[in-house]
Nucleic acid binder design. Structure first.
Lengths: 99, 99
DNA sequence: ACCGCTATTTTTAGCGA
DNA sequence: ATCGCTAAAAATAGCGG
């Protein structure tokens, strides 16, 4: 029952890694859902893995909406040219991690 | 000191909502990071809100990479036509929530 | 707005089935 | 693979600064 801290590195045992993925995936989804409800924000979450099956919890249309929104936001505010306005109409939080 | 359970509904007080957003945003990022490390997966996370400033924790290039990967995955597997193969090369978990 | 504190709630690793 | 259980770890709401 959780003996000691969990080391923050890749779980080598494949079964354990799979079980942990399943549990933490659900935990992350719950947290994302709670954040969206409590704080009145829109959340998009994607997890990619080189091996495995497809898990999808939303329509492609919805994700596409977020992608379009993100792109049009970036375009409107010239993010690439570092000319973002201090107060804009969309709040975006993006975290991109590769394995 | 956390008296009682937190009701799962929009926090009406704007200051409290802002503080909670800041705290839970960090928590969610940490969870996403941990999932990616422990389970050897790639994670993309976006939070949108109608009002507020831009938060960005990754380069546009990286997010763009994920978007491209997602799109090419969907294209390759004809997701829109419901002809997904049972074992594919990319695992995707998507949660899309609107406020 | 942001920090530190801490009581309490929530998550979760490891196990058995 | 997936469930239930439980002790331990982690997150966090509400406060003071």
């Amino acid at each position: 029952m959780v003996r000691g801290k969990t080391e923050m590195k890749r779980i080598e045992n494949e079964t354990s890694r799979q079980v942990t993925f399943s549990k933490r995936r659900n935990g992350l989804l719950k947290k994302a859902f709670e954040l969206s409800v409590l704080c009145d924000v829109e959340v998009a979450l994607a997890v990619f893995c080189p091996r495995g099956r497809l898990y999808e919890f939303s329509s492609a249309t919805s994700l596409q909406k977020s992608i379009d929104r993100y792109k049009s936001y970036r375009k409107d505010n010239n993010v690439n040219n570092k000319t973002v306005q201090p107060d804009i109409q969309v709040k975006i939080l993006i975290c991109q991690l590769f394995c």
